[in-house]
Write a protein that binds this DNA or RNA. Structure first.
Length: 193
DNA sequence: GGCCCGATACTCT
DNA sequence: GAGTATCGGGCCC
């Protein structure tokens, strides 16, 4: 099965984020497939979105978000965690979707090695900082093109799209000092259990 | 199961 | 220099 092409990502983050639910995030590491189904995303878009890093305008860090869709925006936060986002929208407009959680499917042995302190599979990748650890992603992969042939990181389409009725939305996590309406705007997406 | 708290370093002011 | 799109351990139910 092919992977998601650039046109998929060249849309509003508000469409891409829910559409990514059920898709499979794949990381090729030394020929091994580390993969999981995406089960939580958040949309960040525009300089007017005060929860988005681009609120400060173009800086060396946010430059990637202004670039072409389908590229990885991987940044460092809290002194120890890497976060994986996928750039969306047209070039010049800063927007991205944060991938917050996946369900591990393939490469479980390798993930065991990358997450040595956790015994239970479900908790290996149920947070944005956790899944980058489990997939061995870090700043070295910032700017990677997920739509390029033979990319070590890409996303496979969902067998079946998640219907709106089977989806839960809510405020984005961790925006403690962000003013309203951005703090509470329901741009976080999960499948209903 | 949940709450509290410290770790830790990068980005922009 | 302040703030941060978090995690995991310790503790208490």
């Amino acid at each position: 099965m092919p992977y998601l092409q650039r046109t998929f990502f060249e849309r509003s983050a508000l469409f891409v984020a829910p559409d990514l639910l059920g898709c499979t995030l794949v990381r090729l590491k030394d020929g091994i497939r580390l993969a999981g189904v995406i089960v939580e995303t958040e949309a960040y878009q525009g300089e007017e979105d005060l929860g988005c890093h681009a609120r400060a305008g173009r800086t060396p860090r946010t430059e990637i978000m202004y670039g072409s869709a389908g590229h990885a925006y991987i940044y460092f936060t809290y002194g120890m965690h890497w976060m994986l986002n996928v750039v969306t929208e047209r070039e010049g407009y800063p927007a991205a979707v944060l991938i917050r959680a996946i369900l591990p499917q393939e490469g479980l042995d390798e993930m065991t090695r990358l997450r040595p302190n956790l015994a239970r599979t479900a908790h290996w990748t149920d947070g944005p900082g956790k899944l980058t650890q489990a997939l061995d992603l870090n700043g070295g992969m910032n700017g990677l093109d997920l739509c390029a042939p033979a990319s070590p990181l890409f996303i496979e389409p969902a067998g079946q799209a998640t219907a709106v009725a089977q989806m839960v939305t809510g405020p984005r996590i961790g925006l403690t000092s962000v003013p309203e309406p951005w703090k509470s705007i329901p741009w976080r997406f999960r499948p209903k259990i």
